[in-house]
Design a protein around this nucleic acid. Structure first.
Lengths: 261, 261
DNA sequence: TAGTGGTCTAGACCACACG
DNA sequence: GTGTGGTCTAGACCACTAC
């Protein structure tokens, strides 16, 4: 077949076929030609439409899926996503996931995956400033939902006393709100933000494709006594979440740059 | 061949083959059996090793590549990555990319892709609080390097006066440092952080695989007069960068949660 | 039963690196 | 020329959905 020669011939100056197809579909979606919720043609049909193999179509669709533009459902089809974005503030007040969700018009829910007492891993001991050699902590994993969509997996470690005293409310609610409601006021936090591609396990928990970017919010929060009260991380879907902050600058110190050209 | 039947039979209870292979290789790398810089067996050889097709090997490698564990080089092979992570502080002082790079032992460099006067897009007009209907701004795109590795693409918009006055230093240096050095002191900034998968274009600029997570740091920075002095975004490789902050909480307001269960 | 996406195979051509 | 990764094909089986 000459088709093979033509379609597989890569012009040095052009993108791969799967990217061309991906871009074309993206334009159609963003132009509204496919509306949110609508089903795209099947992989087989798209292959015939563009004159390429199903493998190539799948690679194009994988890219769109990773961008959060479409979701795929086995046995059903490929559907255009209805875009959402929830902002979480890192300034005052300290980050309350449930408050942010409610403020932005979503119902919030928590599904607890585990809540158990374990020997503190080294990193957790350091973050919580635990000195006992066999210090115990409570380890919780839970999923945050916004309107029945899983948007984040939270992994939290509580000091033993806290976990024991608040086992019941903690296992059902959002971390920060539950602590504050029970008299543990958080006054400061050290946080960091990074991003990782979804592993196979995470992709199943959060109903995202393998490799979709996730935001990782690492935190160590301190109570009124300046002692660490809780630490952990929140892994959230990058298509649903972002973090905001307002930064004030006292007096920039550029001395480190003095020797620069 | 019976091999086909065996290898293609998916146990309901198990992961796909490409994930199994990916995990096995990941374990070997993290255990140090493959050292940073070392070359892995070729895709063909890995296929024979694991008894799978080259396509399946490629899918496994793609996952490792997206996680930043390996890099692929056409005509040469697959190489284990030497991991790096640079922290950028969002607290005081305001984010200076070059200062952070220098502090953490890297040499910094900027490659300017474009620096030109354009009519301000609507979003830029809003962010810079420009009122003139046909307001002009300077648009700059540049790549930040750490030790000759491209780690970020920065897109910046300057008000017309600033861009005109500082065309030369701006086109060669880091945004914030150059502004401050030239008397434009930044006092506050509104920022947001999100994450996207690398597009085809970005993957070429930053030498990363298609779909690798990128951190997007959006900013609007104000000068001493509280007027916006610059806005833009920095897209950085998630395998090389993270953002940190220290948060102080005045008095948490939980009133919005009062009606919660 | 028919149709869909998920996985995998075997084999082809290309662009690139290296000796 | 040989070997490598990058792209693409044609075709297979599976699990799931819907009728």
């Amino acid at each position: 077949m000459t088709v093979f020669m033509v379609s597989s011939g890569q012009d040095t100056s052009s993108q791969p076929l799967h990217m061309v197809i991906s871009e074309k579909l993206k334009e159609k979606i963003e132009a509204g030609l496919y509306e949110p919720g609508e089903r795209l043609p099947s992989e087989f049909d798209l292959g015939e439409l563009f004159g390429v193999s199903r493998t190539t179509v799948r690679k194009a669709i994988a890219s769109l899926s990773q961008q959060g533009l479409v979701t795929t459902q086995r046995g059903k089809g490929i559907f255009v996503t209805d875009p959402h974005k929830i902002s979480f503030s890192m300034s005052n007040p300290l980050l309350y996931f449930d408050a942010a969700l409610k403020q932005q018009g979503y119902t919030s829910r928590v599904q607890s995956l585990r809540f158990q007492r374990i020997q503190a891993p080294a990193e957790v001991k350091r973050k919580l400033a635990l000195t006992a050699k066999d210090a115990q902590v409570y380890w919780q994993e839970k999923i945050y939902y916004a309107d029945d969509t899983p948007i984040a997996l939270d992994i939290t470690y509580y000091p033993e006393a806290t976990g024991q005293a608040l086992a019941e409310p903690l296992s059902q609610g959002f971390t920060y709100s539950t602590l504050v409601r029970n008299g543990i006021h958080l006054r400061a936090a050290k946080v960091s933000l990074e991003s990782i591609p979804a592993t196979y396990e995470l992709s199943e928990y959060l109903a995202v494709p393998l490799g979709m970017p996730l935001l990782v919010f690492n935190y160590v929060a301190c109570g009124g006594n300046r002692q660490p009260a809780v630490c952990g991380k929140t892994l959230s879907r990058s298509d649903w979440t972002c973090y905001t902050a307002e930064i004030e600058v006292d007096s920039p110190d550029l001395s480190i740059l003095e020797n620069s050209p």
